[in-house]
Design a protein around this nucleic acid. Sequence first.
DNA 1: ATGAAAGCGCTAACAC
DNA 2: GTGTTAGCGCTTTCAT
Lengths: 321, 321
Amino acid sequence: MARVAGVAKSTVSRAFIHPTLVAAPTRERIRRIADEMGFRPSRVARALSTGRTGLVGLVVPTLSNPFFGPLVAATQQAAEEEDRQIVLMISELSAERETRIVERLSREVDGLIVATSLCEEAFLRKVAKEIPLVLVDRKVGRLASVLIDTPSGVAAIADHLIGMGHRRLCYVSGPPGSWADAPRIAALRARAEEGGADIVVAGPIPPTVDAGIEVAETVAAAGVTAVIGYNSATVLGLLHGLGTRGVRVPEDVSVASADDFILLQSTKPAVTVLHLPLEEAGQAAVRMLERLLRGERPGRPVVIGPRLVIRESTLRARPPG
Amino acid sequence: MARVAGVAKSTVSRAFIHPTLVAAPTRERIRRIADEMGFRPSRVARALSTGRTGLVGLVVPTLSNPFFGPLVAATQQAAEEEDRQIVLMISELSAERETRIVERLSREVDGLIVATSLCEEAFLRKVAKEIPLVLVDRKVGRLASVLIDTPSGVAAIADHLIGMGHRRLCYVSGPPGSWADAPRIAALRARAEEGGADIVVAGPIPPTVDAGIEVAETVAAAGVTAVIGYNSATVLGLLHGLGTRGVRVPEDVSVASADDFILLQSTKPAVTVLHLPLEEAGQAAVRMLERLLRGERPGRPVVIGPRLVIRESTLRARPPG
DNA sequence: ATGAAAGCGCTAACAC
DNA sequence: GTGTTAGCGCTTTCAT
């Protein structure tokens, strides 16, 4: 390539990386010839010489949960803009496997994005010292992180409901031991108190349609006019279970979901959901990682706020009586 | 590292790659010292020297469709066993974007796995000449590929149904223009003919719960005793729509799904589905790629057969009258 | 503004 | 069985 263009290879190299250091005519000629011969600088050789691979490790616990697909997609896209490639690893919800993966990956990529990490804090701290690390959906001390503020989103649902006259709401909680429930319930209670409403908590139940159908019994008997489900499966079940019991949605009871799996937009009625802007989260994570890679400080966690998507399943409360 | 162990670096290198060429004591010593100092051979340097990066490109159209999550996970796991890493790219269902991605990736990885490719045949052929390429869920001439034989799976559903005395079945077809429908319908008709049954085709309809609910009207009026839905969303809708119209599942009508999104196992009744063994597909793809990388010929496409999972939603047909 | 040369960390061919 | 050496294709000083 350099020979063909009649210049030294260092000049070719410069033409690509520091275009300003090369005289315009030379630069153009090099570019043109490179195009003609389909020349692309080898990332590997560059990596060896610069110490940076252009690779970003992305670790997610699973791809079965619809939460992570969009996150991975967004991260990949954002990384691509920075001319980086994503090395994806899936921990299969095992903390031990995740630890191994992160350990290994940390020696082979420029930086790491780890979503909903199950690892121990101490380990993550250690890793962050060795390599730029961004946590998504997990907070560990001052480590760089992108947080999705579902509790405040759930609170927004409560506001919406209370604003429509509902005074007695039910939250159907998720699987026993889910770390997600407590903050949501706390946020919910706070809003309810402000708005003069009551919160009834049903569950915990497994996040399945079936469990949702069964818990409908409890919900129907609880004397509430609105219910918020832990996730889409729960809500799908609720819809079905309430219908079976002759409870009309939304006329008798309003229903909302704390997540937004796509099916919920095509049920009857379409369900009011919390949309989690995972695209934003992915972009934010990449931006933050890029900052770390430039040697800048992580700064405060980026908090992504869910957006309330109001659909047919939530309605003004019927006037009492 | 070499210095610490008192040997030449080539010996260290050999101790890792061709252990047999190094005397056992030397090898052990090297390994021990390497462990102690946490030494890991640089993949980048190795890549530059050998011309192989250890990277495998994986291209999928989207992660929103639950089909691809498990496929990606399986592929990643299988690749890991071979000490390879997956560079994931998502085409967002755009043929143009996919083409760009494949083009780019092909210069930076050892091999490529492309799922449900939207690219043109000629392009894929060209790429396959430049770099080991395995297609998943798409067949192009003699190119290496892993196929998922849904038509024969759908036929298995028909057999199951016909075996239980059903003589009039309905297939609810997917989105207009779906390439998946025609082969399924053909397989269905063939089986029906053999078994002395009739096939009614409803649709095409969009693959949404809502459309499934609406098409239930048609299905209910079609005088069939069993219905096979294009996918999970369709079936979820059917379940709901049939119920609303007083049609009991499975007593009046049996219902089955041509895919197996997890929700369907926790509906009421649990739905008979076609399980697509995507784990196998991922493994097969990696194995096949590995073969190509060794310079062997691709061989015939690997065909993965779906497995029929019989649940509560399919029942013996009621005796006529 | 450009060239020459060193070196990134490894592998592989060739000596010994 | 092990050491020596020559690259792999770039980036980056240091000259010019």
